[in-house]
C-alpha cells in the first residue's frame, strides 16, 4: 500500500505519461484539425476540449454544427453522447473522497474525469492509501488534460501547414480512433448497441439529418437493451 505522497505523485506521472498522454495527444490532434477544417474558431476547439472533455461529445458538437443542425438538437445530442459521465462519476466519487478537502471541491474535480483517469484510478486505487487517491487522480488527470489541450492546439494550428493527405489522415483519425476503442468495449449489450446503432446512424442520417443521432440512440439503444434483457431472462429461466 502506497502511503507517501511523493510515491503516489511519481506513480501517477509514470502512469499518465505514456499510453494515456500519447493517445490523447493523437486523438485531440485529430479533433483540433477537424475543428479547423469545419471552419470554427480556435477558442471553440480549446473550449470544447477543456469544457466537454470527452471526444464523442466534442465530435458530436462539431459534426452536427457543421451539418447545420439547430442549436437545440446539437446541445441535446452532445448531452446524450456524454450521458456516460453520470454513472462514471457516481462510481468514482466515493473512491476519491477525502476528509482533508471540502466536499464541494468534488464538483470541480469531476470536470477532469475521463475514461482514461477513471480506468487508471479503478486499477491503481486498491494499492494506494485512501487519503492519497485524490492526489493520484489530480496528477494523472492534469497530465491528461494538458496533453489533450496541447494536441488540440497542434491539430488546429498545424493542419493548414501539413500536406493534404496527412491533414485528411488526421481528420480520419477521429472516427477510426473511436471505432477501434469501442471495438474493445466490454459487455454484450454495449457491443449489441454499437452494432445496431452503426447501420441505423447512416440510415436515419439519410431520412432525418437533424434528428438522426437522437433517433439512432433511442431506437438502437432500446433494441439493444431489450435484446440484453431477453438474454438475461432466458438465462434465469434455464437456471
Amino acid at each position: 500500500m502506497l502511503n507517501q505522497s511523493g510515491e503516489v505523485t511519481r506513480l501517477a506521472v509514470k502512469d499518465a505519461i505514456g499510453f494515456p498522454a500519447l493517445t490523447l495527444l493523437a486523438s485531440m490532434t485529430g479533433f483540433g484539425s477537424l475543428v479547423h477544417e469545419s471552419g470554427l474558431p480556435f477558442t471553440v476547439a480549446l473550449a470544447a476540449t477543456a469544457g466537454i472533455w470527452g471526444l464523442p461529445g466534442q465530435l458530436t458538437l462539431v459534426e452536427l454544427h457543421a451539418a447545420g443542425a439547430s442549436a437545440f438538437f446539437v446541445i441535446l445530442a452532445v448531452a446524450l453522447a456524454n450521458a456516460r459521465f453520470l454513472p462514471m462519476v457516481v462510481s468514482f466519487v466515493p473512491l476519491i473522497r477525502s476528509s482533508a478537502t471540502h466536499p464541494g471541491w468534488m464538483f470541480v474535480l469531476v470536470q477532469m474525469l475521463s475514461i482514461n483517469s477513471w480506468a487508471a484510478g479503478l486499477r491503481r486505487f486498491p494499492a494506494i492509501s485512501p487519503e492519497l487517491r485524490q492526489r493520484y487522480y489530480i496528477v494523472f488527470a492534469s497530465i491528461c488534460m494538458a496533453s489533450g489541450l496541447l494536441g488540440t492546439a497542434i491539430g488546429f494550428l498545424g493542419v493548414g501547414l501539413l500536406p493534404r493527405p496527412i491533414a485528411l489522415g488526421l481528420i480520419f483519425l477521429n472516427p477510426l480512433f473511436f471505432a477501434i476503442l469501442l471495438a474493445g468495449a466490454q459487455g454484450l449489450s454495449a457491443s449489441t448497441a454499437l452494432l445496431i446503432g452503426a447501420p441505423l446512424g447512416v440510415l436515419f442520417h439519410l431520412i432525418a439529418p437533424d434528428l438522426d443521432l437522437l433517433i439512432t440512440g433511442v431506437v438502437g439503444g432500446t433494441l439493444a437493451f431489450l435484446v440484453g434483457k431477453m438474454r438475461q431472462d432466458r438465462k434465469k429461466y434455464h437456471d
Partner: peptide, 9 residues
C-alpha cells in the same frame, strides 16, 4: 448506456 453506445455507433 445502451442509448449512448447506439448513438456512438
Amino acid at each position: 448506456t445502451c442509448v449512448s453506445y447506439a448513438m456512438l455507433g
